[in-house]
Amino acid sequence: MNPPVLEALAVTKSYRLGRREIPVLRGVDLAIAQGERVALLGASGAGKSTLLHVLGLLDAPTSGSVRFDGRPVHALPVAERARLRHRHTGFVFQFYHLIPELTALQNVLLAGMMATSTLAWWRGRRAARAAAEALLVQVGLQDRLHHRPAELSGGERQRVAIARALLADPKVVLADEPTGNLDSATAAGVVELMFSIQQQRRLAFLLVTHNEELARRCDRIVRMQDGVVVG
């Protein structure tokens, strides 16, 4: 078995609401190996998205640890976590979260600008542009490079988000209900695309979903209930 590229060890997460402490994650252990496709299944409020945010270093755990390639990363400074997140992890969200002022190509290019200086970016802009275009062609958007999100369908927007998540060549992709905002036909197309890319690149893939059928297509299903992994 491949060593895990992403691990959560006894992770807890609580939020404070006034004087009350509200636990969301209550000691979660999860490991994802390279090339492994894992579904995170559970009802609303089970803590799936929270676990995904903690694993993606968007939020810090209250206790426990998160490891990238065996190295604890959860307690690193904010800026270092951001850099790691950029290199290591790609995100695909339910609501796409594209920048409306940027075209499809610019939204993908954005992912390559996060940890490089303006001068370095300027020097490498042609190569970056070629890579972004290649990704958009791979996701079937060769004719939509210069369209803004408002000019794209839901499925097309999600394809742009997938291309953006892959530009930095991450080891891990975290997808939070990627088909939750799509009709079934479009959703099926997007799912096929994601899975084929995941297999091609041997990405560690964590898919948060309500959909049992979609979950069964993954290598492993992790069920969550009330902040704990139950199966």
Binding site: L58, A79, R83, R85, H86, F91, H97, I99, L110, R164
Partner: peptide
């Protein structure tokens, strides 16, 4: 939020 998710520092 998305800039942060993509790896943008504060």
């Amino acid at each position: 939020g998305i800039l942060a998710a993509l790896g943008g520092t504060p």
